[in-house]
Structures are given as structure tokens and as C-alpha cells.
Simulated scan of single mutants.
Amino acid sequence: MTNTPTAHELWLRPYHPAPQDSDLTLVCFPHAGGSASYFRPLADALADTAEVLPVQYPGRQDRRAEPPLTSVARLADEIVTVLESLPRRRLVLFGHSMGACVAFEVARRIERGSSLDLRGLIASGRTAPPTLRDTKVRFMDDDAVIGEIRRLNGTDDRLLLDDDVIRMIMPAIRGDYLAVESYRYEPGPPLRCPVSVLVGDDDPQVTLAEAEEWRAHTAGDFRLRAFPGGHFYLAEQKDRVVRALAEDLARFR
């Protein structure tokens, strides 16, 4: 008899047990079309520092039979509910690209009325809300969508040449782009927790000036760091990114 996975088993991927000497959890939110496994290298590198829980959105990998959620608000609502079902720990949220948008909305919901202990938000590769850069990928045909993914250099080109792979991943990619491109910021008070922003200095999706605009969204400490590279500088600068995350985790304690 197959056991039905719990909500947190569906949504969160603990690649390592939580360190015994830390009650800090880093929750990682993937980019559009991305999956929890994208954060496996960071989870491995930070295994002794914090519990690392990458989020698995519906519609991909082991959740590919589920329809993707096409609303950032829906994603945020679901993820807050899942986090509230976990044992109480101090939380830091880390999102890249679309994931930064989802993480921001999760942080807002936590601070509006959850008992979760939010210690900080780390936003990567994303313009600050309410700035919009609507690339209209959701309206493109499959070839143009693949071209956009190649332009950002976030997926192995060999996978994008495999028709079976493309058919498997395209619903999630389209659902994610619909979610992030239709997202509209609702004005509200700034976060109380500190915000750290990471960005590639040659990112076609966000300029340094746009990354700096995240400062307006926190009443707490703010820090901006740029790394050599484009939109997926995270892979190119893994060691430096790991050090930056470790510094933020120590600072947010």
C-alpha cells in the first residue's frame, strides 16, 4: 500500500537532516520552470549551517502530474500553510528570479499574521516590486520560449534539444511565466525583517539600480551584493554565493 505524502513532503525537499546545533531553516524558492533540485548544490554546501528546504512547485519532476499553479498569490498561500505545519524554527526565505517574488509574498503573509518566526528575506535576480519587466513569454510559441530560456542560460542546452524533455517541462514553464508575468504588487507596509539582495552584474533581467529598489521594501537592515555573471550567476559563482548566504544566515540570527 502506497502512503500518501503529506503536504510538506510534496512541497519541500530536505536533502540533508537539520544540523543538531542550529534551529535555522533556509527555504529556497526556484525560478520560473525551475525545481527544488536546482538548489541541491547549495543545500549540500550549507548542510552544516542550516536546514535547507528547497520548494517543489506543482507541475514538475515528481509533481509533474499536477497542474502548475499560475498565480504567485496562490503559491504564497499554499507555501505559508505548509510552513505553518512544520516544527517551529527560525526561517530565512531565499528566492531566485520568480522565486524572489514568491518568497516576498510569503514574507508579507507571515508578517501579516502568522506565528512563524521570520528572520530575513534574500532576493536574487529579480526587480523589486512594483517594478515590472513583462517579457510576455507566456504568449510565445514553444520555440520562442526555448529561445528565451537559452538566452538566460539557466538550462543545459542538451536537454532543450530533446523533444520528450521539452514536452515534459513546457507546461510548468508556461504556468510559471503566467504566474510571474501576471503578478501585480499590492501596496502595503514594508517588511520588518531585514532584506538582502543578490544580483549578477550582467543580468539582462534586472539592473543594479532596479535591485537597489528592494531597499524600500524593508524597515530593517538592507544589503545589496553583485556577482560577476548573468541571470544565473548562482551556478557560475557558487562558492561566492554560498559564502554570501552563510553571512546572511549568521547576520539574521
Results as ranks from 00 to 15, higher is better:
residue 247 E to P: 06
residue 57 Y to L: 14
residue 23 D to M: 01
residue 73 A to D: 15
residue 134 D to R: 03
residue 20 Q to A: 15
residue 182 S to L: 06
residue 13 R to G: 03
residue 116 L to I: 02
residue 84 E to C: 07
residue 124 S to R: 08
residue 145 V to R: 03
residue 175 G to L: 10
residue 85 S to P: 11
residue 192 R to Q: 14
residue 198 L to E: 12
residue 31 H to V: 02
residue 80 V to F: 12
residue 230 G to C: 09
residue 201 D to Q: 05
residue 80 V to R: 13
residue 5 P to Q: 01
residue 48 D to C: 12
residue 66 E to G: 06
residue 22 S to A: 14
residue 110 I to A: 10
residue 7 A to N: 14
residue 128 A to F: 04
residue 208 L to S: 13
residue 48 D to Y: 02
residue 58 P to Q: 14
residue 186 E to A: 12
residue 10 L to K: 12
residue 189 P to S: 12
residue 60 R to I: 04
residue 35 S to Y: 07
residue 237 Q to M: 11
residue 130 P to K: 05
residue 38 Y to I: 04
residue 223 R to N: 09
residue 252 F to R: 09
residue 104 F to I: 08
residue 39 F to V: 09
residue 131 T to P: 00
residue 93 L to P: 07
residue 160 L to G: 04
residue 49 T to Y: 12
residue 208 L to H: 11
residue 183 Y to H: 06
residue 86 L to W: 07
residue 45 A to S: 15
residue 44 D to L: 07
residue 32 A to E: 08
residue 20 Q to K: 12
residue 179 A to P: 03
residue 67 P to S: 14
residue 7 A to H: 13
residue 246 A to T: 09
residue 200 G to R: 03
residue 239 D to C: 09
residue 219 A to W: 01
residue 63 R to S: 09
residue 205 Q to G: 15
residue 212 E to H: 11
residue 52 V to P: 04
residue 87 P to V: 04
residue 155 T to A: 09
residue 38 Y to H: 09
residue 106 V to C: 11
residue 195 V to A: 13
residue 143 D to G: 04
residue 101 C to L: 14
residue 227 F to Y: 11
residue 169 I to W: 00
residue 78 E to T: 09
residue 69 L to D: 07
residue 219 A to G: 05
residue 94 F to S: 12
residue 92 V to Y: 05
residue 54 P to K: 06
residue 106 V to N: 09
residue 29 F to K: 04
residue 224 L to Q: 08
residue 214 W to H: 02
residue 37 S to M: 11
residue 172 A to E: 08
residue 3 N to H: 11
residue 125 G to Q: 01
residue 223 R to G: 06
residue 179 A to Y: 00
residue 212 E to W: 04
residue 87 P to Y: 06
residue 221 D to Y: 01
residue 116 L to A: 09
residue 32 A to R: 06
residue 174 R to F: 07
residue 156 D to S: 10
residue 54 P to F: 13
residue 252 F to A: 14
residue 144 A to Y: 00
residue 232 F to K: 03
residue 33 G to C: 07
residue 113 G to D: 12
residue 121 L to M: 04
residue 157 D to T: 01
residue 52 V to T: 12
residue 249 L to A: 02
residue 8 H to G: 05
residue 46 L to N: 08
residue 155 T to L: 00
residue 30 P to L: 09
residue 118 L to C: 05
residue 245 L to A: 12
residue 193 C to M: 11
residue 249 L to Q: 08
residue 6 T to R: 12
residue 120 G to V: 05
residue 91 L to Q: 07
residue 7 A to T: 13
residue 3 N to T: 13
residue 142 D to V: 01
residue 43 A to G: 10
residue 109 R to C: 03
residue 118 L to A: 07
residue 126 R to M: 11
residue 238 K to Q: 14
residue 85 S to M: 14
residue 141 D to I: 00
residue 15 Y to G: 10
residue 4 T to V: 09
residue 218 T to Q: 02
residue 163 D to N: 08
residue 148 E to D: 08
residue 20 Q to C: 08
residue 105 E to F: 03
residue 189 P to W: 03
residue 173 I to V: 15
residue 121 L to T: 02
residue 183 Y to V: 00
residue 201 D to I: 03
residue 119 R to E: 05
residue 237 Q to I: 02
residue 30 P to A: 10
residue 166 I to V: 15
residue 70 T to E: 15
residue 25 T to Y: 01
residue 83 L to P: 01
residue 210 E to R: 05
residue 58 P to H: 09
residue 111 E to Q: 11
residue 139 F to T: 08
residue 52 V to K: 07
residue 185 Y to K: 00
residue 219 A to R: 05
residue 93 L to E: 13
residue 156 D to L: 06
residue 204 P to H: 08
residue 223 R to Y: 03
residue 138 R to Q: 02
